[in-house]
Structures are given as C-alpha cells and as structure tokens.
Design a protein around this nucleic acid. Structure first.
Lengths: 205, 205
DNA sequence: ACCAATATACGAGCGCGCTCATTTTATCCC
DNA sequence: GGGATAAAATGAGCGCGCTCGTATATTGGT
C-alpha cells in the first residue's frame, strides 16, 4: 500500500459525507465516532487515521463551507461596493454555506478562537485562516493596505461571536444574527477608519 | 440528614479548593474528576451532587474571581476617570484575579459565549452575568443610560476574545493581552459613542 | 513468482466524565 | 430509645473519544 491515494481520498470523502449527514440528522454530540465509522464502512480506529479528533471532522466540513462561500462571493456581481458592504456580503455567504453546521459550530470555537496555540496544519484552524485570508484580500482591494495582526484578531473575535450567537439564535429566519453581523462589522470598520490617523496612547495596568 | 447546610457548604468549599490546587498543579485536562473527589475526600459520584459538570467547577472558580475583581475595583480610589479608563481598570482587575485559571479559561468559553442557551442558574453563565452586571453599572454611572442588548453582546464577545487570547499569550508579562484589551475597549467605546446619534440603515442579505 | 518492506485497516481495550440503584447517615416524632 | 422518613454518599458501571499492538493488503526488487 504505497500510492493508492485515490482510495484514501475516497474514504476521506465517505467519512465527511457520512459525518455531515449524521450530524444534521441527530446532532454533533449524539453522533458517535463509531456511528460515523460504521456509516463510512470502516473500523472505528481507522477513522482516526483520517481525522485526529471528532472536532477535526466538523472543522473540515466547516472550512470546506468557508471556501465554498469564498467562491460564491467571488462570482457575485457587485457594483461599487463599500468595504463594509463587501464584508457583509462575504459573511452572509459564509452563513448560508455553514447553515447545516449551525448548531455544531460552538464545538469548534473553543479551539479555533485562540490564534496562537494551533499546529500549522490543524484542520480546525484552517477555518480561521481561510476566512481571514479572504478578509485580508478584501481590505487590500479596498485600498486599506494589510490589516494589522491586532485588527485580524479583533475581526476574528467578532466573527466567532457572531457564530456563537447564530448557533443559539431562535429568531424565525435568524434575522437577529444578521443584525448582529451588521453591528459587528460597523463597529470593526469604524474602528479601522479611526486607526489610520491616531496612534493610541500608552496605558499602565 | 435534613438541614446540615453547614457541612454541605464545607464540602463544596473543599471541592473548590482541591480543584483549584489540582488545576494549577497539573492543568485542567490532566486533572480527573476522580482526582478532585479523592483530594476532597469524597466518592467520585458525590462530586456531581455539588457540580453538574467538570466545567461547572472551573466556572464557579472563575465567577468567584470575577466577583472578587469587582470588589477590588470598587475599593480602588480613582479621580475623574473616563468610562474607558474605568472599564480598563475593571478588566485588568479581573485578569489579576483570574490569573491562576488563565490556561483553563477556553474550556468555559464554548458554553459561556452564547447568551441564549443557558439554564437560569447555570454556574458557568454566572461568570458572564456578574461581569456584565458591573459593566452595566459602570455605564450608568458615566451617564450613558442602560446598555442595549446588542451592546452587551458585543462587549461580551470582545471580552471572551481577550480571555481566549490571554490563555495562549506567551509574551513575558502578558503585555500583548493588555494591548488587546486597550484596542478592544477603544473599539467598543468608540462604537458606543457613535451609536447614540445615528440610527443604522437597513441592510438586505 | 516470491519475498521483504511498509502503508493502511483493524478492533480490543483504556481512562475519561458522568449516572443511578443502593446504602448510609442524620433528623423528626412518639 | 426506636422506628419512619428523607437527604446525602457511594462506587460499580456505562458509553464515549481515542490509542496501540496486531493483522492484512499493496508495492518494488530480484
């Protein structure tokens, strides 16, 4: 067994497909890794040759959704959009793609909230990286130069807050979440605009 | 055994003391509930008569720290402080009190990030409630009226982001975290100031 | 064809957080 | 004191995520 990369990829796809279906049917907690393995027709231990943890599976599904959202957004036709409008459209596209995972996202936030303690090739971290990549490109396209590390940190915190809120949002069409997105992005872009001129004063603890 | 409330309280205190010590010594994950029960000299099952989950224990420790920080802050003498300076002082006091739990806070964020899905008397949620209570009182004291639900939501998201960052902060004296607090609060207060006048326009998805 | 060499699949088993039927202990009433 | 009663403690046991020693399949070299 040295180069059967095609079979490996197929198994990986079967796992993701089975997991996605089971999570949607019965929830993240209620779905056991043994369930997923059985549905993918592999042994329970084999699952962990493909994904290090159960969270990594949903993390992989999520970052696939984020990449799909990036593609959706790229092929959207827009005319003279402001930065915050582009951001809103991208986030909204993300929410549409993440909808099947909505209830299960909090399980990812614990690990993917912190920007430091992640292994380079971490499945769950790539959700953050993929999303922030697009946001960075958007900022540059709107002539704002590169976003600082602290700006990206603040943006990601707000985005994570939106996802956590969304997971529990009980308003009929999740319109409360969209309102929160609007406020979050308004706050962020307003702050960004203020940042360029002033340099913040020192502050003692 | 009908009214021995004093004994119950003493056992509860022994659990918290043992858990705090063990978490500090060997970390949250590495400490088992059986360890804690043994250190508190109770059976493994008895632990769960006092705390519903392992997270609830660290949640209780954390909300005690937040309350202590509120007391620290209240007895601080300050002269003509601005709103954001008061906020910074309160948050800094919180970080000081939470320091022994720093590394273990992410385990709480998953549950306490979302403002909706919490049982009324949830141990972990009281961390959020206690903190936001003080922030609300501060806002009123500075003549800003009551903070809106969305303002509190945004504030809490930023605070959770700070805690998540702090847990992984490897800068020598965690000065990176203090800088992040400064930026977060600056962004929040700036947004609040902008909120009072304008009414935000509608936005379609 | 055969034999290493090795990548992959396997599943019994571990230790975990947590549950629950049972036992123990404290209290009240006479 | 001595049941009756109920609160609290107990620890065997459950199902979980995950590990790891073993078995099996696939390749390259001759």
């Amino acid at each position: 067994m040295r180069v059967n990369a095609e079979t490996k990829a197929a198994t990986r796809r079967r796992i993701l497909e089975a997991a996605g279906r089971l999570f949607a049917e019965q929830g993240f907690e209620a779905t056991t890794t043994r369930d997923i393995a059985a549905a993918a027709e592999i042994a329970s231990g084999t699952l962990f040759n493909y994904f290090a943890t159960k969270e990594a599976i949903v993390g992989c599904l999520a970052s696939a959704a984020v990449e799909a959202a990036g593609a959706d957004f790229a092929r959207q036709t827009r005319e003279t959009p402001a930065f915050d409008e582009d951001l809103f459209a991208y986030v909204a596209a993300g929410l549409r793609r993440l909808k099947p995972l909505r209830k299960h996202l909090p399980s990812l936030l614990q690990t993917s909230l912190s920007p430091l303690a992640d292994a380079p090739a971490d499945e769950a971290a790539s959700l953050r990286i993929a999303h922030l990549e697009t946001v960075s490109r958007l900022a540059e396209r709107h002539g704002r130069g590169e976003l600082s590390a602290v700006a990206l940190q603040l943006y990601w915190t707000l985005y994570a807050g939106v996802l956590a809120f969304w997971a529990a949002d009980r308003s009929p069409k999740q319109e409360d979440t969209l309102a929160l997105v609007d406020h979050s992005l308004g706050m962020f872009v307003g702050w960004l605009d203020g940042q360029t001129s002033e340099s913040p004063p020192e502050r003692k603890q």
